[in-house]
Design a protein around this nucleic acid. Structure first.
Lengths: 290, 290
DNA sequence: TCCGCCGATAAGCGGCGCTTATCGATCGCA
DNA sequence: TGCGATCGATAAGCGCCGCTTATCGGCGGA
């Protein structure tokens, strides 16, 4: 299966063999076995190029899912072998990373017997991870995915704009939408209706050009690199602007009306491990004592 | 892996071996190998009983996911080996089964080159299948999962109540909520806010006892069996009442205010296979010509 | 025309995983 | 308390799977 996926990726039996650290005939045989076992031809091999067949295209995704499941099993086994302690996997929106990190540290102090695994991911990836059970709890922006229990709502105000350090706007004390001029504003492509980015887009609608930066924002650092490179400006919450220091990006206060965003915790319904309940309370306390 | 899951299920190496059609030492060795490879003890074996260890509990779900992924690969391979034609996998809420079946037949007549695979499933299972890519398009009741394209909205009126044939209520020409008396009403446990069952529950709130019949309603036949057995009454749409004939259940018109439910098609955003577009149009036409 | 590259095939071999046979431990029962 | 039954682990044997090296056939470029 690994051979199939690797050949499909590099479209060459020889190179795949090199990447896999085995000989070329072994790869040929492995793919041949898989083809005989499944009864379909996975690749069209002309003697000058290798192409995925239509059947191969259809099976590639499943093969990758299979490998991913196997990797997940191995990873969890390795974790259990090293430290059999319970683990809370927490997905969090990148812009509340500070909160997530503080809550995790605090939980670690209060309950040294559990591990917390933090995973920054965008809204869509987080909801998927929740439904698949890859994470046990998530800090999400509204709208919350239906079918999950939600709690510990709180608000975050988007009151800053990330601006390249060299830009004339970076010197101003405050910014208003009217001052943006021809600057572009970076927004993710995937904007759940009613969510943060949809509201930012609505606030700026018509006045400025938007620029799509990808399916979702999973990693603020990468997007701030884009900002520094002059790709556009990025609206960020106070929370984040206060916690990030970069020489190449300035955070300028931004008056864009009342951009208060609702965040909250979401976790699967039904019986919930006590560690998740503890985490929920910890987040709650962390919010109170900020 | 199969051995691990099977032993975990029956909690006996011997019985697992029998179920798997292999000898008991083979199962012992397979589990032992897996334990050595992953570095954790999966079972606590006392010489009188076999229990899953905590590590085993944590890994069981992943092992099952892995087997499921493997089965999915095999199934798709088998399908491709028999008929390499494109397939549309359509999830549909059981209560619009008639529509889904008609649309599928119609699509089959118009486009004999594609197969349609129909899968009845409840709201939650359908959204999961959509996010996992197990189905390409779904006929869902509102609320629609965010992050998907939706279209072809239509309305369905819940205007009948399924009543056991022997019940006094079965003889009446019409029913009102007030007439239900001490009868219970069956509802699924998992009711997405704003969805069909939530509205049915709101309509009946306080007046009658509800009885939860499970996580979701994936199979109306099974629930109608419960109705026939006297477990409770089930609100059903006109659509369904008109298409099902059962001797042990009567569908009595029910005045419960305006229980119009919104349904629609949902499919993943971005590039969509043309077959899905065709299906969407076919459902649209099927709705028009009903 | 010949060389180089790529994938398929052949032959050989080591090891994995299945089998049967057996052991050790524990519990029920008399 | 001793015996048999049951269950899982272990031992020995063996067949086959899958990897290796060596080689072939097809195609394109110099």
């Amino acid at each position: 299966m690994r051979c199939f996926v690797c050949v499909a990726r590099v479209l060459s039996f020889s190179r795949a063999a090199a990447e896999l650290g085995m000989s070329q005939p072994a790869v040929s045989q492995a793919v041949g076995r898989l083809e005989r076992a499944s009864g379909v031809r996975l690749f069209e091999r002309t003697s000058r190029e290798v192409r995925l067949s239509t059947a191969g295209k259809g099976l590639l995704a499943r093969a990758e899912a299979l490998l991913e499941a196997a990797a997940s099993f191995s990873a969890e086994a390795a974790r259990l072998a090293i430290s059999p302690r319970p683990v809370i996997r927490l997905a969090y929106a990148p812009l509340v990373g500070g909160l997530a990190a503080r809550a995790a540290r605090r939980l670690g102090e209060g309950e040294p017997s559990v591990d917390v695994e933090l995973r920054a991911m965008g809204w869509r990836a987080a909801t998927q991870a929740l439904t698949r059970g890859e994470v046990g709890v998530a800090i999400l922006g509204a709208p919350f995915p239906v079918g999950f229990t939600t709690g510990v709502r709180f608000h975050v105000t988007v009151g800053h704009l990330a601006v390249p350090a060299g830009d004339p706007l970076a010197g101003l004390a405050r910014l208003t939408p009217a001052q943006l001029g021809r600057h572009r504003v970076l927004l993710p492509r995937n904007r759940p209706p009613g969510g943060m980015w949809a509201r930012v887009a609505a606030t700026l609608r018509g006045e400025h050009q938007h620029r799509v930066v990808g399916e979702d924002i999973d990693d603020f650092t990468a997007v701030l690199d884009l900002v520094a490179a002059g790709a556009g400006l990025l609206p960020v919450p106070h929370l984040l602007a206060a916690s990030i220091r970069r020489d190449d990006v300035r955070f300028v206060p931004f008056d864009a009306g009342d951009l208060r965003l609702t965040f909250g915790l979401a976790w699967p319904p039904g019986r919930v491990p006590s560690e998740v309940t503890t985490l929920v309370h910890t987040v709650q306390r962390t919010l109170w004592t900020r």
